[in-house]
Amino acid sequence: IPHGELAAEIAHAIIQAFAEPFPLDGTPLSLTSSIGISIFPDDGEQVEALIGHADRAMYAAKGEGRNTFRFFNPRMHFAASRRVQEENDLRRAFEQGHLELHYQPRRRIESGKIVAVEALLRWRHPERGLLPAASFMRLAEETGLAIPMGEWVIVTACRQLAAWQRSGTSARIGVNLSRKQFLHPQLEAIATAALRNAGVDPGCLELEVAEETVMENAGRSAERLRRLGEIGVRISVDEFGTGRSSLPWLKRLPIRSVKVDRAFVSDIGADEASAVIQAVIDLSHRLRLEVVAQGVETEAQLTFLANHGCDEAQGRYIGAPVPARELAPFLT
């Protein structure tokens, strides 16, 4: 390629080509792409250097949301070194037991009873304190750590639920599945083994899958959800309202509930957000799906949800995520 402008045009054309849906076994599939570009001789004169710099630029494109391209610049050396350090820190944290689960309660709105908890992954970083999963899960997915970490979460959550059940609680436990974990071919086997080893009924485990992940490949997701349904676990669509799915389509799958995205809950009072929530609740109930509202932060929000028939609520107004020992008294 004779110059950078042409490289940019080609990169843009490639991204556009992959964005167009194409059929795979009869199912439309769309892909995102991230492209890195290095220029000879400005970015290096050896093939190895040019490839390495293009690779760093590609990771920069991924870090900016994917589906874009970036040219290499020298500042990426620092970013690459920092990324390697963060990867090593995360891997060491996982191996040395510095990851932990906190649990956030979900309340049945009508009765006020805590009927479920959501297991939320945290990293107790020696310098940065307690970090939420959102701050490191992308790194975990890019480095292959998402699968073993996800398995650890399912196993640990099932063990904790078994301990609570021995104390008399009947609450369910919910676990978020990352994109890669949802697509992993051994997911059913991992969940089945965790439930069996903990002695927990499958119906007490709720696996939460983001709407965006489900709709990334509808045909493949439908098959995976059916296989999960066959082992008896509950399935919930998380962050509902942010993707392209429809409730009638979801009803054909073994889904028990939808979790309304917190963005709509936070805007309760605004006409559009309130109308969306009311519509989701009404249609979900007609399809015999339960509705969970996420991010409930105020009494006014909870009152609105109660008046419109929402089934369950989760958020800091209900209870913040806490270690298991702090939540136990509220489950009895």
Rank of each mutant, 00 (worst) to 15 (best):
L131P: 01
L120Y: 04
A275F: 12
E127S: 13
T143G: 07
A273F: 02
E45D: 11
V209M: 12
F240D: 11
V175R: 03
D238S: 09
G229A: 03
T156R: 07
G295N: 02
L90A: 10
E206H: 02
M137R: 03
T68V: 05
N176E: 11
A189Y: 10
E87P: 00
R128I: 07
R196T: 12
S34T: 06
V280T: 13
H3E: 10
L289N: 00
E297R: 08
F264A: 09
R316N: 10
Q181Y: 13
R128V: 03
E118S: 01
T143V: 13
A60I: 00
L327C: 06
L305W: 02
G36T: 00
R166T: 15
R286Y: 00
G315T: 03
D267A: 12
E20G: 10
W164C: 03
L145C: 05
E299A: 15
Q46T: 15
F304W: 11
V322I: 14
L90H: 05
S266D: 08
I1Q: 12
S178M: 05
N217I: 02
N73P: 03
I14S: 06
L29M: 11
G269Q: 05
L101E: 02
E297I: 05
A7F: 00
G269V: 05
V47S: 12
G65N: 10
E188P: 03
G174E: 02
G52R: 00
T27I: 08
A133F: 07
H125T: 04
R226I: 09
R166N: 07
D267T: 01
E208F: 04
V214P: 04
F72K: 02
V153C: 09
I281D: 00
A116V: 07
E290Q: 04
A79Q: 12
R252W: 03
F40H: 15
G219I: 06
G150R: 00
E312Y: 06
A157N: 04
W123E: 04
D43F: 03
L121F: 06
R325A: 14
R138E: 08
E151W: 12
G229K: 10
G309R: 00
R138Q: 12
V296R: 01
G199K: 12
L250E: 07
A162S: 14
A270H: 15
P105I: 02
R286C: 10
N67I: 09
P254M: 08
E127T: 11
Y103L: 15
R128E: 09
W152S: 01
L195P: 11
V209W: 06
Y59M: 09
T213Q: 15
A57M: 06
F18C: 08
